[in-house]
């Protein structure tokens, strides 16, 4: 059973086609990057996968559940993090983790919070309001929140945006470790090509709502005959014809 199985997914907002009939699969345990310029349709795709937006047509199955009919069963096993969705900033780190632990009905919640605090070096911050934390600390809290229910599928929207290289590097290492330990799948929308090259087994490239290319980072670089994934991204974003959508 694939972690994500998307078929002929389409979403239009007025005259704008945000997602134009895309198909893709994310196998269990895979880390897949979702790339594209601003407005390419990445955030809409993530929102469709999470059931925040209803599709005009097509289907989304997440962990075997049809998101149109059975999304809450899937949501129990998914989690999500985005720098554009905040955690209540007046609540402490521990209170935030407790809130989401309850929302996901996590068993042994206090032990799980201690475990996450140890993993993400949050123990000294547990009693501090999230609003008083640095960007790097907030990113660690956001990732701890995203892992509170031990998700089988993690959807991450620019997880290292605005982080310093050290914090970003640690965060990537945590993601790789989580995947190795749990076999979870991760779908990652990112503009950081170094990050995508390091983390992702496969990459989906979107332009104007369509999936215009896909493959492993190495395969894409080889196919385009360019130096790195950033060059590939620029080539696609600036309008090179599709090679193998």
């Amino acid at each position: 059973m694939d972690a994500i199985d998307v078929s002929a997914l389409r979403k239009r907002f007025g005259a704008t086609i945000a997602v134009d009939g895309i198909d893709f699969r994310v196998p269990p345990g895979a880390i897949v990057g979702l790339l594209g310029a601003n407005g390419a349709g990445k955030t809409t795709t993530l929102a469709l996968l999470l059931g925040l937006i209803t599709a005009d047509s097509g289907s989304v199955r997440v962990l075997g559940h049809d998101m149109a009919r059975d999304r809450f069963a899937a949501l129990q096993q998914i989690n999500f993090s985005s720098p554009y969705v905040a955690l209540p900033y007046r609540l402490t780190v521990a209170e935030n983790l407790r809130v989401y632990g309850h929302l996901y009905s996590v068993r042994g919640l206090e032990a799980r919070i201690r475990e996450l605090a140890e993993t993400f070096a949050l123990a000294p911050l547990l009693d501090r309001p999230v609003g008083q934390l640095s960007a790097g600390q907030k990113a660690r809290v956001a990732l701890a929140k995203a892992l509170v229910n031990r998700p089988a599928l993690l959807l991450l929207d620019e997880p290292t945006a605005s982080l310093d290289p050290d914090t970003a590097d640690r965060l990537r290492a945590w993601l790789l470790r989580y995947r190795a330990e749990t076999g979870a799948a991760i779908l990652l929308a990112s503009h950081n090509m170094t990050e995508v090259e390091r983390l992702c087994d496969d990459v989906l490239v979107m332009r104007a709502g369509r999936l215009v290319d896909r493959g492993s980072p190495a395969a894409l670089i080889a196919r385009y005959g360019l130096a790195d994934l950033e060059a590939v991204f620029l080539d696609i974003a600036r309008g090179r014809p599709e090679i193998a959508a």
Binding site: I78, F80, S82, L87
Partner: peptide, 18 residues
């Protein structure tokens, strides 16, 4: 409105909370 102002609704709506 507290959820709206704290930009937390996205997290709430993607949780299993009905």
């Amino acid at each position: 409105l507290e959820e709206v102002w704290s930009r937390n609704l996205g997290h709430v709506f993607v949780s299993p909370l009905r």
